[in-house]
């Protein structure tokens, strides 16, 4: 059963996400939303099955960025939709089916197998670090999505700012957890490695973005452009790292 879910739940989720996208584009947002919800449930089952696919519960594979990033984005959108009363905001939230579908489809092209956890990964800090880091990235990407709508004259509540602030908090927490893990495992809170320096770069970038509001001559449109730039930087870094994942030995495809 678990193997079946592991093999098929993700492609099924993508089918529903894409169907939801079609409904959204055909201006049937309500049907699109419910289809999206079914896709999300299937995606959730897939995430859980990743932890169980080897017959023993391993939590680390659940938070593989290729699948957990679109899942986090979908989860944040659903939560926002649940709490939002504003129709205009709900319309923007409905449109997030586009990035969620896009990132899920990208996940299809990455290896789905699971890597054995070495001694340096035998700690809960690994899961905490990756999960929070990816939730932060989801906030940044959704922040950029909302910033795009702000530039088009929508999202007047500047929800993109809140998403970026939330993303920055999560990202900072993930950095401190990661630093502690790296210290315990390798004696260094920060390595001079591509991954660590890229993380520091993203942290500084968003720290700079959060300071933009104090510029008297700059307005929220400037902030929106910077939010879009941050997401671009994040995606370039993210996918340049993930492409190297093709060469790792994995179990299960």
């Amino acid at each position: 059963m678990i193997t079946l879910i592991f093999q098929f739940a993700f492609p099924i989720a993508i089918v529903f996400y894409l169907l939801g996208l079609v409904f959204y584009l055909c201006r049937q947002p309500k049907t699109g939303f419910y289809t999206f919800l079914i896709g999300f449930i299937s995606h959730t089952l897939f995430q859980i099955s990743r932890g169980l696919s080897l017959g023993i519960w391993f939590v680390n594979p659940v938070f593989d960025a290729s699948y957990f990033l679109p899942w986090s984005m979908a989860a944040i959108c659903l939560m926002m939709r649940f709490f939002s009363k504003n129709e205009e905001i709900r319309a923007i939230i409905d449109s997030t089916i586009i990035p969620v579908s896009l990132f899920s489809v990208l996940g299809l092209f990455f290896p789905r197998g699971i890597m054995p956890s070495g001694p340096q990964h035998q700690t809960i800090l690994v899961s905490v670090y990756y999960s929070i880091d990816i939730i932060a990235q989801a906030c940044f990407i959704l922040g950029a999505w909302f910033a795009f709508f702000h530039l088009r004259g929508k999202d007047q509540d500047k929800l993109f700012n809140s998403l970026i602030a939330a993303g920055f908090i999560f990202y900072s927490i993930s950095q401190v957890v990661g630093a502690y893990w790296a210290y315990l495992g390798w004696s260094l809170p920060m390595h001079w490695s591509t991954k660590h320096i890229q993380s520091a770069s993203i942290w500084c970038y968003y720290a700079a973005v959060l300071h933009l509001r104090y510029f008297p001559t700059w307005n929220s449109r400037h902030e929106s452009w910077f939010a879009l730039g941050g997401a671009a930087l994040l995606l370039i870094f993210n996918y340049s790292v993930q492409l190297s994942a093709f060469s790792f030995p994995r179990i299960g495809g």
Partner: peptide
């Protein structure tokens, strides 16, 4: 303050690629 943090971010982004393509140079720094 903004421009300094922004410059550091860009400098680190460039540095990440220097590390990626010259790992043997930067590994001893750890």
């Amino acid at each position: 303050n903004f421009w300094l943090i922004f410059a550091i971010s860009l400098n680190l982004a460039a540095g990440a690629y220097f590390i990626k393509f010259n790992p043997s140079l930067f590994k001893p720094l750890n």
